[in-house]
């Protein structure tokens, strides 16, 4: 594999992997509990089990290998975490009990932080969703669907619109967002949490 992290000239032992411990450690430290990332034996249970595996750039285990090899750019620019559907099949089947799904979340947030998220639709969907949650305290399906579709049209605008009309007709979507009473309190909490996270 072609990498930017790999040095061009041979280096003495100990120098090659300078990037590795810090990136690996960062991922481990920012995954809740014990991620067990270093326990992966590359058996492929994750990649075999994954419902969106065929559409991923890399199997989860390959991403873990990149993380362990210090190939930060390659790991963060892979579409793999963005195609994770959070079904946890890999996590419960993993013979080494690696917390695969949780590590995927950590990789996504790191990729956004570093401006390397490759799957724009996924990133924007997450961000749009979060935007509504922070604005109203609840998600707002109609707003989400329209705002997201205007930019990304995963299923084409016409189809999305007809689906929306259907939802309205069935009484399954609201035209206005629901707002929680103490949205100010929620914002204070989230603001503080973000501040704490940035301190790291």
């Amino acid at each position: 594999m072609n990498t930017t992290a790999e040095p061009a000239a041979p280096v003495r032992e100990g120098e090659a992997a300078t990037a590795e411990p810090s990136f690996l450690r960062w991922i481990e430290n920012n995954t809740p509990g014990d991620s067990r990332l270093i326990m992966c034996i590359q058996c492929g249970t994750c990649g075999g089990s994954c419902p969106s595996g065929p559409d991923m750039d890399h199997s989860p285990r390959q991403v873990f290998a990149m993380v362990r090899a210090g190939l930060k750019d390659e790991a963060l620019s892979s579409n793999t975490p963005w195609y994770c559907v959070s079904c946890y099949l890999c996590t419960v089947r993993c013979p080494q009990e690696v917390h695969i799904t949780d590590i995927m979340y950590t990789l996504k947030s790191k990729a956004i932080e570093e401006g390397m998220a490759q799957v724009d639709a996924a990133k924007v969907w997450s961000e749009t969703f979060i935007g509504y949650v922070e604005e109203y305290g609840r998600s707002f399906e109609l707003g989400l669907a329209t705002r997201h579709n205007i930019r990304h049209r995963p299923m084409g605008m016409t189809r999305a619109a007809s689906l929306g009309v259907g939802m309205l007709a069935k009484g399954r979507i609201d035209l206005t967002p629901q707002v929680i009473e103490d949205v100010g309190q929620l914002r204070l909490i989230l603001w503080k949490a973000k501040e704490l996270e940035a301190e790291q």
């Binding site: 058996c43 990649g47 075999g48 065929p54």
Partner: peptide, 10 residues
Amino acid sequence: QVEDTLAGQQ
């Protein structure tokens, strides 16, 4: 169903 880890394919 398996990941062929040497081919890198599901």
